[in-house]
Design a protein around this nucleic acid. Sequence first.
DNA 1: CCTACCGATCGGTAGG
DNA 2: CCTACCGATCGGTAGG
Lengths: 207, 207
Amino acid sequence: MSRGRSAGYDDQRGMILASAAHLFAKHGYTAASMNQVAEACGLSKATLYHYYKDKYALLLSIAENHVSRLDAIVAAVLAKKQTPERQMRALIRSIVEEYADAQDAHRVLTEDVKFLGPEDRERVLGKEREVVKGFAKVVGELRPDMKKAALSKPLTMLLFGMINWMFTWMKPEGELDYESMAPIVADLFLGGLPGINVPTASPVATE
Amino acid sequence: MSRGRSAGYDDQRGMILASAAHLFAKHGYTAASMNQVAEACGLSKATLYHYYKDKYALLLSIAENHVSRLDAIVAAVLAKKQTPERQMRALIRSIVEEYADAQDAHRVLTEDVKFLGPEDRERVLGKEREVVKGFAKVVGELRPDMKKAALSKPLTMLLFGMINWMFTWMKPEGELDYESMAPIVADLFLGGLPGINVPTASPVATE
DNA sequence: CCTACCGATCGGTAGG
DNA sequence: CCTACCGATCGGTAGG
């Protein structure tokens, strides 16, 4: 514990980020005010600005921290050699778990990226694309013909739809928990994948 | 063409609503300003306020119009007697088509309902629940045991996740069009549904 | 000279 | 249908 620096500087930053994520998730980035953030943190606004340069820095940190964690999780799962099916189940389970632990950040990431500047947004979206790429790789192993038809990415996005949407209709205090939904999502996706027909007028992949 | 009233009063209102939906979808309800709406409409702000009482009235109209159309579409499909599988395919196809035609309104409905007052929000969400109920009814016919396990609604929400999320990653000008995605979504959902295992620690339905 | 923090208020812009 | 504004509040910063 060094002398010159407050014991909890990083703790304070973390606490502020969590409070901001909660308010941004609830009211949206624009509608949430720095006054609200300061109040939720039990700090004056001037003190809040001591820890973060401006409102935008909060948004960027929330988005980047979250997407970086997602990236790391996907990389960790893919590093373990397993059958594609087991790998897909592991991917779904670990991503759902991470989302459950970071619901505020997740909502901010999905709804407020539009408020990032072009460069920051591209960097965040680039990391998001890495996450999608990891999933799509496994989808391509499960259905190589889909990969050829340039459909692994679209199919992966349907999977992400199921997962991302979960956090809009499931209540944290609800009777149905995220962990029990993960295997259902996996069953549905893995069970449905083999039966998909490649469209006759074959479309080209969006990226 | 009556004298006292402008020839295109309702046309103007419709045009304004479309412009507002576009801006709300792009920037979010809070970040989009009435000045922007007025400019996009080629009207002064005062004239804009002649057609709509306030910003909130625009939000409410956009949300209600859209959700009412969805309600009507689901009711129309369910009225036609068919096998559950054909009915589910028809539901997916017609909802995707409607979403494709009303992407701005759809985004506003999914991201900006939180800005509605409690009563208005409840009314809109109530209509949304009717739409879900229609889908869930067919899911229950396809897997009666899921209905007993109170899982038809959650499974329906996974399906809505795939569909709703489509409009975040598909670009209107993209090479992959909505009509060709609808049968893929249907294949995935209908193909995956039979293979889902009812969780052992049976959860109770949200709703 | 540093950090952590306060009460008060800045210039600019929102919805109306 | 417009210009000219309002009360309120925004994000951000001053001195101490």
